[in-house]
Design a protein around this nucleic acid. Sequence first.
RNA 1: GGGCGAUUAGCUCAGUUGGUUAGAGCGUCUGGUUUACACCCAGAAGGUCGGCGGUUCGAGCCCGUCAUCGCCCACCA
Length: 1059
Amino acid sequence: MTELPKQYEHKDAQQRWAKFWDEKGYFQSDPQRGKIAGKKPFTIVIPPPNVTGALHLGHALNNTLQDIMIRYHRMRGFETLWVPGVDHAGIATQAVVERRMFEEEGKTRHDVGRENLVARIWAWKEQYQTRIINQLKEMGCSCDWRRTRFTFDATCAKAVRHFFFGLFRDTLIYRGKRLVNWDVHLQTAVSDDEVYHEEVAGSFWYINYPVIDPKPNEPAFVTVATTRPETMLGDTAVAIHPSPKAAMESLEKELNAEISTASEKEKTELTARREALQKRREETLDSLETLAAMARDGRMVMLPLMNRPIPLICDVWAKPELGTGCVKITPAHDPNDYEVGKRQNLLMINLLNRDGTLNENAGVYAGQKNINARAMIVADLEKAGLLVKTEDRLIDLAHSERSKTPIEPFLNDQWFVKMDKLAQSAMDAVAQEQVKITPPRYAKSYLDWLGEKRDWPIGRQLWWGHQIPIWYFLPDATSANQDVKTTSETELQKAFAGRNDVLWQWDEEHSQWWICSQMEDLAEDAIPGRKLVREEDVLDTWFSSALWPHSTLGWPDQTEELAYYYPTNVLITSRDIITLWVARMVLAGLFNCGKVPFPNVYIHPKILDKYGEGMSKSKGNGVDPVKVIEKFGADALRFALTHLTTENQDVRLALDFECPYCQAIVEQTKKNRTQPRVQCPKCKKEFATQWAEKEEDKALQSAPVIGERFEVARNFCNKFWNAARFVMMNLSESAERETHSENFFQSQQEKDLTKDNSQIRSENTLQIPLLLLEDKWILSRLATVTQQVTAEIEAYRFSEVARTLYDFAWDEFCSFYVEMVKYRLSDPALRPAAERILAYVLDTLTRLLHPIVPFVTEEIWQRLNEIVPKRGLTAWTDAAESITIAAWAEADTAAIDSDVENQFGRFQEVLRAVREVRSRQNVPPKTEMRFVVKCDARLAEILKPMTPYFESMAGAIADDWGENVKLPALSSNVAITGVEIFVDLAGLIDITAELAKKSKDIQKLEGFIKAKESKLSNEAFVNKAPKEVLDKERDSLADLQKQLSAAKEAVKVLEESQK
RNA sequence: GGGCGAUUAGCUCAGUUGGUUAGAGCGUCUGGUUUACACCCAGAAGGUCGGCGGUUCGAGCCCGUCAUCGCCCACCA
């Protein structure tokens, strides 16, 4: 065996084993092979990362958890498939490329044209897909890379067309004029989900609209208030509540009701509101009632600047308590006004061009940018004496997630999917637990969102996406026949006779046919004498993501993969796309395949930065996992992330740079963490970061990213490595002496035993004679841990998996078993059994750890295979050629023994007590101590055999055990449950320290005893508590009292010795 | 406005169905080159579990309420 380095060298191991796994094809899945072997499939589709940029630690967490599930199931013998891939992320990617192009070259997409822009986006996609896949590989993700899919590739495109076609067939697709969120920068509609709100400083303008021919006693003006004066150009009405008095009264009633139940603090605020309302009623109610009457009378006002008469209308949207009580109605540019417009049959005047400039409907302001027009209009109103006043105000303005520019509500043709039935099917699936969401609380937000059943706007005015498979054709303009519908339908029937991949529907609003096709393209002249034109809009990117679990398996073709792997087994994702993505996958899976795409959804926490903000590509605060791997290794990265994944807490990671020149810790700040290069404040040299792209930046040395949680995980990997190293160094010594590897664990005594027993040999069964307490203990613990870890993985309790293994490996295996074995290894009679158990525990632990830390476990597995190719405890088995395909550990439940664990626990307590005395008394480590233990005969029998371990692990020699031990003249005494330990410290003792400690102990004990006594003298407790609780309390009190008297006795002895 | 989550040691967090004296890692302090590991070993100090009230024999855990923080959704002339 080659020399084992003192520290686990992750870089080398990762390279070696990644290559090995790839060459062996362990991650490749094959439905044929699975079926022949009678294996069940286990499938996960990756949440395809957007090709907008590189992955950050949030993705690293997401993919680590998936890999744990995949590797675990692979070891359990499932035919395991993890489908990798990336998402074209339509609008997001186009926005990123456009922004980059504008920043670097000052060009817009209109400057370069469609073809050129799309080519640039493809180049971007290639670059980032490669980088993303490499990041996943660096992390050790065991995806079947041959099956890498892209939501915009030919297979996915086909699925998209078939899905659209199916929806169209079921008349779930429609098109209509709708008010959409218009991104004037990208010139596309964006969905509500792509909009965020941000407060900006703005103004609130009060404007007078002159009343046309006011009657006597009627006001000459109606005053309206607005934050967007430029929209007045599109006003088509002014609304007033139909009965302002009733509205204000009912509002006051509500307020009163609230006040009566509100808390003190809320009361003051509510009362203030009521007073304001009352005041307002006094001041404005009369004039509002007048206006309402005028509206009922059908009176008109003159729209200033445009000189257009518009009606005064009654509508409940006008809240008497807000603004001036009257509200201007701009149906084409405000969602609420749009509703009013529809209700009241108002004219809808669109003021905007697609680029955000005002159109011809804006009169003299046409061609102006919105914001310029605003200033002009305000000035003109002021000139006309119609501007009453201006107030400063904070405005919550909608912004596009993609371009970060304000949204303009814009009336536009838009494609929709009818959601009522589809949403219901997806709701039922979760409500009836065909899809189980973990943690369950997330089912609520899923159901709430779907419950609104809002139709899904699917069209985007972009160049990067799946084009909607709808064609139009220009009707024959020369035809004398006015019934275009009937005649053209005949043409359609003729042209597409016998085809079931083309459908058409009549569009009433635009008086034309929509032709929908499953084909990639329809010929321009598919209808003789007509020219077919394709719809230019592309589909919302979620339209293709929704199909991901089945499109990646080949749907709509009935592939072997689809039949074998679908439905997939679990979807692992983060909570922010439960609605956008998970819900839509469920409904699309049901619609297309008749089955839910996965029975389980696991929602994991989010990774936050040190400021508590979620990591995201768009914010630029995402940390590249490769920067962590550089320093700590992929295993440490994965272990740390797994360890952090608790059920209800987001994960906060404080990270910093480590200067590559002087190793100084350079704090990551909001400012420097997005820079391609940073200067070290200590050595003043500049280093590169993950953002380095230019050659001059890349030429600098690159700084790794460091963080406490990664250090902890790296230390654990190294600890485990060293434990394995210790075990293997010892085993290889024995292996060199023995040619038959399966025999080398046996002492001569054991060999004689098994030689005579032909039955045992023929069954290939082993015996382990000379099983000591610590052997039984570690085997019992190992079996328990195996059970626990298995259950925890199945329940997605990732943090607990990591913790269980960490504690067992470090605190039990390393700190106790390995330490104890050191003594036994020098005894030829004791050595073989110990070695066999060492090998067995190491083997099992390596299997249990493998899903989390694949590289270090493979490294150990391979080296162990060189020394001990056959392993086992009750039967020898050949070790698998790779840990990735080794069988998952089965818990040896027969080994679980709580008596043994309790007995061992007593040993640990006594050992700790002896060590504590050494430390307290400042006895140098090499100075031998002597002690006696006073305890009952049964315990003495258990502890006595442990004598050598007290010597090797605490440097202390036990002189006697039992009830009548001879006490040393002067000792440090420690009392624990049922045991008193007297460490002989004649000549060494620091009496002052000892007395101080004792008096502190006594104080503490007296406190506990007092509490217990009062508890036990409480009749209610004695009467009502279960018997076992009561017994426990009584035992505990008795024990505390014993400890107390022991402590008091010790004080007496100490004080006497002082005299 | 509606919903969800959090508040436990100096810091970052565990704590499963209520039951001995509430745990870990980091940090701090003391002592260590014991033939796996200083990315280590042994030991110690450090908490009235956000406040108040309730249920219970018994509350970090259940209920109510207040406070603070975070996230999501909706709305805002």
